[in-house]
């Protein structure tokens, strides 16, 4: 056990866990930030995607020690009022079915939109292949990302 200092969604935390514990379980079990989901534990489904220094990482294979002192953003902190263009677009397109994969999908899409403000279908598919949706909402995800790009452009 060791104390690890974390900065998550702008807030400082200190957790007393084995430094090799994946960030996913620190978020879920110790900090009660359960919007980040467990789907596979082996970097294969994308349910656990969070931002580490602005990059999309799979928190199930990211040791908490790697996040120490760095900026972590989870779905709970993506926007202050739940109004990130992606969140708005997801609502308007009514993307989710069961909803379980969707925070991971949104977190992956957020990095895509920052890198490529107006992505093509192919760019979206490429960026989103790491996120499985068992309910098959991929078409709506594509549509919502295009809509989010529009919303983002309006805001700018």
């Amino acid at each position: 056990m060791a104390t690890t200092k974390l900065k998550i969604n702008g807030k400082e935390h200190a957790v007393d866990v084995d430094p090799s514990t994946p960030l996913l379980w620190v978020l879920r079990d110790h900090l009660n930030l359960v919007g980040t989901k467990y789907g596979c534990g082996v970097a294969s489904c994308g349910a656990c995607v969070v931002h580490l220094e602005g990059e999309a990482v799979r928190s199930c294979v990211t040791k908490v020690s790697r996040a120490a002192g760095k900026e972590v953003v989870t779905i709970e902190g993506l926007s202050e009022n739940g109004d990130h263009p992606l969140q708005q677009a997801w609502e308007q397109v009514d993307v989710p079915q069961c909803g379980y994969c969707q925070s991971g999908q949104i977190m992956s899409a957020a990095v895509l939109l920052r890198e490529i403000p107006n992505p093509t279908d192919e760019e979206i598919d490429l960026a989103m292949t790491g996120n499985i949706c068992r309910c098959g909402t991929y078409l709506r995800i594509r549509k919502a990302i295009h809509l989010a790009a529009e919303i983002q452009n309006e805001i700018k």
Binding site: N32, G35, Y38, Q87, E91, I106
Partner: peptide, 21 residues
Amino acid sequence: KKNVDVKNIVNGKPLFSLDYK
């Protein structure tokens, strides 16, 4: 009509039993 839980879903609210504590 939109999914009544869509806002909860896109904000990562604890909706699933795996999230329960």
